[in-house]
Design a protein around this nucleic acid. Structure first.
Lengths: 246, 246
DNA sequence: ATGTCGGGGATCGTATACGATCAACGGAGC
DNA sequence: GCTCCGTTGATCGTATACGATCCCCGACAT
């Protein structure tokens, strides 16, 4: 009795997927009428779908001009990673008390599969497992709103992250070790703040490596100043640093 | 020259506002046709507006049944506050290096107006100033995505927060002092993490007070376990063994 | 050569129309 | 008296139609 999806829903998920797969490239124009034809429906459902995608930030819309796939430039990528590091760190630390032994075992198994994948490296599969690993942990967070934000962060990232490990393959091995550490911290009931910072640093490590590899001249400070990520940032906080809490 | 807003936009902001003001109560049914009549337009623009509101979580939608104003229960309120505490804490700490002397002065002035408001207390005005104070700081955060999330958090909260200080008036005085401390930390270029925690605790203090006032027996752990919020929580974080959590 | 104006085509914005679906109600059968 | 089922009204979902707006491009004047 699975009710046929409404055309509006169809349009939504189709366009959504096509954006994720890259079939609709960033910046590409999304003409309502054309999409309607391709989907075999009129423009009305397509319009609704586009509206939702707009609200989710996947497409931009201009009055009387039309929609286009949102452009994700490097800046946006870095911001998304930084934001996700913050949100996910908090989510995992909140989730920690609710992570069962079974959950830990399951996550560990995923991590082992990643380890096995190191030889004969497959960036895409590796990335998929990576996402599974992380969702397994943050998913236990009792704050559903926070969870939702983690979800959105990953989705937002999916458009680029697909190839993250292609660009920075040397991160793979370190990543797995950091996963081990996170699991250990959770397992031994470490201080929430410690867990939070561990996850945060872990997530920030990849974009940092990415920046170092592409070009050092730029301005990697965007991430350098992430709170608590690197204790010794020495970022140009022109103000005298008074020592804070431990 | 201001181009007339599209009816879709009109519909969006009208419904949005009506939800915020409470004219449309939580759980209330939103009949497309009726709204269209009230706004003097057909249902199509209304549908689009509802879709966007749906994507933002302000309304829920059920196929072939219709839309209704999303219900915000106490749980959702607490989760939103907790989430905002995390996001805003990070945003302010990232913003700190970019907060100018003028910004600080401006924020201090807002805080002074709040102080003046303590006698002859006006919860609504107080709350407005409070939001202004906070946005002035987090607004300097260079991570626009994070900023956007702060914005959404406040908006989401606006539906309930309107009356927060009505419920917990004794928080007002403490709140102002905490503002002072935050300004001081930023002014002296304190460690980002210190700033982050200060903002986090500040935001969490109100819902905590709220919980204590309404009923202490309950289970205020939702917030007690916020990472780093209260160093001495000693939350009995016993891990659920094998068996699923919750 | 450059800048301005205007026509034409593509696309958007919205109203209207109509079939589809759901929920509520009331009567027939047990 | 209770359950089941068909009818009915309200509302949703979508197609179609048509006016409104914008962008592109070529002609004309400077």
């Amino acid at each position: 009795m699975s009710t046929v999806l409404s055309k509006s829903q169809q349009a939504y998920s189709t366009v959504h997927d096509r954006i994720l797969t890259g079939e609709y490239a960033p910046g590409e124009r999304l003409v309502l009428g054309r999409i309607g034809q391709e989907l075999g429906c009129s423009v009305v459902p397509v319009r609704e779908a586009i509206r939702r995608l707009e609200a989710e930030g996947m497409v931009t819309f201009e009055r009387n001009v039309g929609a286009r796939v949102a452009v994700i430039d490097e800046q946006a990528y870095l911001e998304t990673m930084e934001t996700l590091s913050i949100i996910e760190g908090a989510a995992v630390s909140l989730a920690a008390p609710f992570v069962s032994i079974a959950d830990l075992a399951s996550a560990r198994e995923v991590n082992d599969r990643m380890r096995a994948l190191l030889e004969d490296f497959d960036p895409v599969e590796f990335t998929n497992l990576n996402e599974r690993f992380h969702r397994a942990l943050s998913g236990r967070c009792p704050n559903s709103h926070l969870n939702d934000l983690v979800d959105r962060g990953w989705t937002r990232l999916d458009r680029l992250r697909r190839s993250t490990f292609t660009y920075v393959p040397e991160r793979a091995a370190a990543s797995i070790q950091e996963h081990d550490r996170i699991l250990q911290l959770i397992g031994e009931g470490a201080d929430p703040r410690t867990i939070e910072l561990a996850v945060r640093e872990h997530r920030l490590a990849t974009p940092k490596a990415y920046l170092h590899r592409t070009d050092d001249p730029g301005d990697p400070e965007v991430l350098a100043s992430a709170p608590g990520a690197s204790p010794a940032t020495s970022s140009r906080s022109h103000r005298p640093t008074t020592q804070g809490a431990s």
